[in-house]
């Protein structure tokens, strides 16, 4: 019983990471109708930048927020320079650009920061809490990811800019007609997704260690979460991310063993795509003509 509770709590902690990355995927998907395969590599690169700032002598949180800001700017720049020119390109060439971006960012990580596995610090006290049910880092990182998710929710629901970003993704023509600068909204979406990825990378790196391929598995879990919840539903993606985290931990402990855990992500992806491609909370637009 204690083992079960422990696995669920660990699942929520990693689920928060998956939920953040899933949300980043959904934000880009809603605006471009493409999956940003490079989301994981971008997050890894952001994590390296954080480590670079820390090694330069910055306090952890200063480095953390500085890297978030740099990632935001880089996300905006990637949209402006790489993604925007292919707004009307066929699906396959779009996929090509995303995969290319993945490879480029991955090589850049290896080139700048070398391919050896590095330790990454946690800002939280690294000791077991509440009688060993949860580690300091698990509790802290869950707090951080939940705070990010709530902040993103409040931004999109309750600010005029958040509303404009949603409108630009849903209906670009009508958005222009109310004066929304649609191109910039898409770029801001990329910036936000990159910033969220930066946070997720820093929260997961102390657990899985930092190397250029750190996010590969995590992206797969996040994608499974996004699909499970509904690739066009931000709330669905977040809940899906947490669900996948819990499923992964329980499955790894009681079902398939830790070596085969990653296959669970594939099982989830295939199951959702066969049974309910729109996901659990996928969009069903009510519309009368």
């Amino acid at each position: 019983m204690e083992g079960l509770i422990h696995q669920i709590i660990s699942g929520i902690a990693t689920g928060g990471i998956y939920a953040s990355v899933a949300l980043a995927l959904v934000m880009i998907y809603q605006a471009t109708h493409h999956i940003n395969f490079a989301q994981g590599e971008m997050a890894t690169f952001s994590t390296y930048i954080t480590l670079l700032f820390i090694n330069m002598g910055m306090p952890y949180w200063v480095a953390f927020f500085a890297a978030v800001a740099v990632s935001f700017a880089a996300g905006v720049a990637i949209e402006r320079i790489l993604i925007r020119p292919m707004a009307n390109a066929p699906v396959l060439s779009a996929v090509g650009v995303f995969v290319g971006l993945l490879l480029i960012v991955n090589s850049l990580s290896g080139w700048f920061f070398d391919f050896t596995i590095k330790q990454f610090p946690t800002p939280f006290p690294d000791k077991p809490l509440f009688g060993g049910f949860i580690s300091g880092h698990q509790l802290g990182s869950t707090g951080v990811t939940v705070a990010v998710l709530v902040a993103v929710y409040l931004f999109f629901r309750h600010t005029s800019l958040g509303l404009a970003m949603r409108a630009a993704a849903l209906n670009p023509v009508s958005s222009r007609l109310v004066g929304v600068r649609v191109g910039w909204m898409l770029a801001l979406g990329w910036g936000l997704a990159a910033a969220i990825g930066s946070v997720a990378g820093c929260m997961v790196a102390p657990i899985v260690f930092l190397d250029p391929n750190m996010m590969a598995g995590i992206l797969l879990y996040a994608f499974a979460g996004a699909l499970l919840g509904g690739i066009d539903s931000p709330l669905g993606a977040v809940l899906g991310g947490f669900a996948v985290g819990i499923i992964e931990n329980l499955g790894g402990a009681y079902l398939v063993g830790t070596e085969l855990k990653l296959t669970l992500a594939l099982v989830i992806i295939v199951t959702v795509l066969t049974i309910k491609p729109s996901g659990l909370l996928g969009r069903t637009v009510l519309s009368r003509v």
């Binding site: 509303l163 409108a167 849903l170 209906n171 009508s174 958005s175 929304v180 969009r283 637009v285």
Partner: peptide, 13 residues
């Protein structure tokens, strides 16, 4: 119409 958004959000836009 922004079909997926509420009447209020359409007006705010």
């Amino acid at each position: 119409t922004f079909m997926e958004l509420t009447v209020e959000e359409n007006m705010r836009l």
